[in-house]
Amino acid sequence: MKTGRSLVNLAYELERQLATKKDMIVPSSLMCCQTDDVGSCKLVIEEDSGVGKYDFTSLARRQLADKLKIPFAYFERMRTEQPGLLDRNVNTWLQTERDRRMIRTLDGKVRAVLSDRYRRLDNIDLAENVLPILQQLPEVRFESVELTESRMYIKAVTPRVQAEMAPGDVVQAGIVIMNSEVGHGTLSVQPLIYRLVCSNGLIASDRGLRKTHVGRLLSSDEETITVFRDDTLAADDKAFFLKVRDVVQAAVSETNFAQVAEKLKKTLGIALTGDPVKTVEVLANRYALNEVERAGVLRHLIVEGDLSGYGLVNAVTHYSQEVDDYDRATEFEVLGGKLIELPASEWRGLAEAI
């Protein structure tokens, strides 16, 4: 499992962000795009206090392009090669549309361009509600915590619930909580299997709780901007966080853990009888792994010398520790969880590849 930051560092960063972020519901007609000759793109908003100018993150540019139905590759080409053309395109559509957008800013940058129905479930509210719940787990260890540009991750393990896959090969029950403040996925609470021998994490993504960031319509007929102040940022969905508590407890229960661990253990009996190179090639094509990722998974499969379904699952999750991008590393842990759910027919396609 890829190591992130400490809980203390996470708390400091969440507090820092709380002081510098701002959310607004803005009519499209009160926004425009300004791009200079070197491709620096700003969103200009006519706020009550004056004109605000905000740089974009790459994700926010992509979201704006998507909202305006401009292919992102073309958006970026205009930005770098014809900035005036980009502004004419973007501003024409902004002035034509009557939509209102949720604009989320942080450190003076637009970090997200979202629907006005977007339901904010902010990281600091989530952390304040779930960390006390997680700290009640017996002998809990926070194996990995991270805050990326697009998501927050909290991965915890309890040694009180564990099983042995093979002599000396122990796995323990855990949980991963993920949230995105910028529209990059649902808030989710999912069971985690942690393998001690190599610190691999496997996420059982089909057995958890998900909550979409969609709420009531926040629109109005008035051409005004709604700014969410600090006193309105606190989460008001207490019933949801009670459900989170129940899901956390269920995820690390002996019954739920035994079900996931049994599926993982069954992969020990799947022999990779075909060409390992072809097996990983089929895997890469099916799950969109690039050449570097495919080579990394194959290397772990060969080096660890376990030519079984179990070996392939562990090659995938072990490789995640080498991936620089934390978001992508977590996707490999999710892929490990997908593999243990594969039906026999799909495993044959991997195991017998030649």
Rank of each mutant, 00 (worst) to 15 (best):
V171S: 00
L283F: 03
G108E: 09
Y12S: 14
E291N: 12
N285M: 10
E254R: 14
L233T: 03
Y287W: 15
R100Y: 04
K155L: 11
Q162F: 15
V214W: 13
K22C: 11
G174C: 09
L283A: 05
F75S: 07
A166P: 02
A250T: 15
I340M: 00
S199C: 09
K278I: 04
L114F: 05
L298T: 01
A173W: 06
L137E: 14
Q34K: 12
D237V: 06
R207D: 11
Q259C: 03
G50L: 05
E97W: 12
G50M: 11
M1C: 07
V214I: 15
S188C: 10
A166S: 11
K266H: 08
F56D: 01
S253F: 02
Q63V: 01
K266A: 14
K109T: 10
E13H: 08
T224G: 13
H300V: 00
M152I: 15
A163Q: 13
C32L: 10
K338A: 07
V189D: 07
A60Y: 13
L209G: 04
K338Y: 01
D169G: 08
L301D: 04
L307S: 06
V247F: 13
E293F: 01
K263L: 09
A73W: 04
T92A: 05
I25F: 03
E346V: 10
E181M: 14
V197C: 15
A173E: 04
I70V: 14
V197P: 05
L121I: 14
D23Y: 05
V38S: 14
S144V: 11
S29E: 06
L217G: 08
F72C: 05
L264G: 00
T255S: 13
L68P: 07
E254C: 06
Q17M: 08
R348N: 15
A353E: 07
Y287H: 15
A271P: 06
L18D: 14
L147C: 04
F56T: 02
G168D: 05
M1Y: 00
A163F: 02
E81G: 09
Q259N: 11
I203N: 00
M78E: 01
F228Q: 12
E346M: 09
L114T: 11
L30A: 09
N123F: 10
Q63I: 08
A353R: 02
D169N: 05
A239W: 01
V170D: 01
T186F: 13
K42R: 14
V323Q: 01
G39Y: 06
A163T: 15
L342W: 06
Q17K: 10
D122N: 11
D306E: 09
D107K: 12
L30H: 10
G174D: 12
R101G: 03
T255Y: 10
E341G: 00
D246V: 12
A271W: 03
L268A: 15
R348G: 00
S220Q: 06
I70K: 07
E181K: 03
A65H: 02
A250M: 11
L121G: 05
T273N: 08
L335M: 03
I302L: 15
R104P: 08
D231T: 09
Y310E: 04
T20V: 07
F228P: 08
V140K: 15
E341M: 00
M24F: 13
P159S: 13
L268C: 04
V244T: 07
T158P: 02
C33F: 05
S180G: 15
E254G: 09
P71G: 12
T158Y: 04
D221R: 12
A353Q: 06
Y153Q: 02
L350Q: 03
